[in-house]
């Protein structure tokens, strides 16, 4: 991408802006040189796109090209991606507010709880949530996972987690299998969930109150097969 391509670049961008294409991906795979005038044109184009609430990103840079562009300060202006697919995923996350979902089936073994906590908190951190939110989500999942293991049907030896996050909130469902819960016991459990009471003299029972405090919404469903706790946690930063 040298000085001879500057005019073509400029023209192409002008056409794009006229057509209303404000999000541009420049694929530099196979390109081993970008001249400073060309970088200047790209910077100018990005500025114009930003004014239209768009953006311009670079993908497919070789290590060599990345180093050359960084020397020109391009890394302070442009975001680099490995490939177009990653850009599209990022775009959908930021602009379409697409929710992304994970699900787990895990052995009902308390030894797994720290690993599950770390999994979910590292995912939210990777997606741009701050440490405070990540810690709160860890606290919530810790309590719910431990409860699911303790109170689930031990013969089943597993429980389930569904996790969905978008830019604004996290939704968590923790489900265990609790066959044989009669309706009056189910009602008691539901009541305890919806109105957790902290007994000052008890060494236990604070977890649910803590989860309720940290969540934006908390709900319990009990059916013939099992118990599902639903939590929504709105992003706070």
């Amino acid at each position: 991408m040298d000085i001879s391509s500057v005019e073509l670049l400029t023209q192409t961008f002008d056409n794009m802006v006229v057509q209303g294409s404000y999000f541009v991906i420049i694929d530099l795979e196979g390109v081993d040189f970008v001249s400073s005038p060309a970088v200047g044109v790209l910077m100018g184009c990005r500025r114009r796109l930003i004014e239209k609430k768009g953006n311009l990103v670079l993908v497919g840079l070789s290590l060599h090209l990345r180093e050359k562009l960084n020397l020109m300060g391009a890394n302070r202006i442009f975001r680099y991606y490995n490939d177009v697919k990653t850009v599209l995923t990022d775009y959908r996350w930021e602009h379409d507010q697409m929710a992304q979902k994970m699900s787990l089936q895990v052995p009902a073994n308390p030894g797994y709880v720290p690993a599950i906590r770390r999994l979910l908190s590292s995912v939210v951190l990777q997606k741009g949530y701050n440490r405070k939110d990540a810690f709160r989500i860890e606290t919530i999942i810790d309590e719910l996972a431990n409860n699911a293991i303790e109170h689930g049907d031990h013969a089943e030896r597993k429980f389930y987690i569904d996790f969905s996050l978008d830019r604004d909130k996290v939704e968590l469902q923790v489900r265990n299998l609790t066959r044989g819960l009669d309706s009056s016991l189910a009602q008691q459990v539901k009541q305890k969930f919806e109105n957790p009471v902290v007994d000052d003299d008890s060494i236990r029972g604070r977890g649910l109150a803590l989860v309720k405090m940290l969540s934006s919404e908390l709900r319990l469903d009990i059916d013939a097969q099992g118990t599902t706790v639903h939590v929504t946690k709105v992003r706070e930063d």
């Binding site: 995923t89 992304q100 979902k101 089936q105 895990v106 052995p107």
Partner: peptide
Amino acid sequence: VPILIEFPVDADF
């Protein structure tokens, strides 16, 4: 019990 994990086709995960 096997562990099952399902996650998006997204390198971030």
